[in-house]
Design a protein around this nucleic acid. Sequence first.
DNA 1: CTAATCACCTGAAGGC
DNA 2: TGCCTTCAGGTGATTA
Length: 270
Amino acid sequence: MPELPEVEVIMRELGPKIVGETVGDVRALWHKTVVRNDGYSPVSESIRNVSRHGKYILMQLDSGYIIVHLRMTGQLMVGNGDPASEKHLRAVIQLSNSKDIYFYDSRKFGRIYLVKLPHHVLRNTGIDALDPEFTWQILHQFTRGKKTNIKSLLLNQKYVTGLGNIYIDESLFLAGIHPLTPAGKLGVADIQKLYSAAIDILQRAIAGMGTTISDYKTVGGGFGSFQNALNVYGHQGEVCPRCDHIVEKIRIGNRGSHFCPGCQKPKIVI
DNA sequence: CTAATCACCTGAAGGC
DNA sequence: TGCCTTCAGGTGATTA
């Protein structure tokens, strides 16, 4: 389940392999994988830059963008005209020098957008969680007056983009905040702790090459290591690493949410 | 405006 | 063995 750290690792590996290449055909093997919505064709354009916004990978071309979202099971590989496997191969972006970008995606949720303007794809996303301009004060503004629980607010990408289910659960644990706490009830000290925890987790996860639970691989086929550093995600029923309570798993907004009832006590009645 | 629910998909895991 | 159900979760659309 690629979130910001996994996408960052993939973006860093992908860039040097494809910047400067000229794009040929973009072939969809699953009809919904490649989305063309404003008439843009990347054919014969060169890749100038590769960047990331939230969980999106942006390849900037001469007059438009190829934007990739891996969703749940998407993987990007770069090869020399011969895919390692046809299984789950959903799209091929041909490059010059007989290179290809292969997009694998068993669950078919991932998308490759061909657009003139990134806004068409990114319009529902807010500030990137690792953008230097993102501060605890901005997080405080987002939460002020909100009755929505903090877990759901952080999952909503229109405020802060890049955090997903795993890193939100881990950030709330580090900050000692119950996931069902109404966002607007969080005080400045809580917000500062949550902000620091999230940034710290994301940076450490990037350093660890991401979290491999099931499908995530780097462009070179490597695995992440941060799954070994998780405190609560997937650890329901086990003893909390910080106190003697048992980690619980509940559903919030139809998502599995992991927390320790001992050190993430609700401050008010939920 | 928020909140809840579903649709999109496949594969793995668990129950019987 | 095998069939059925449940679950995994990012996002967008729909409904209340």
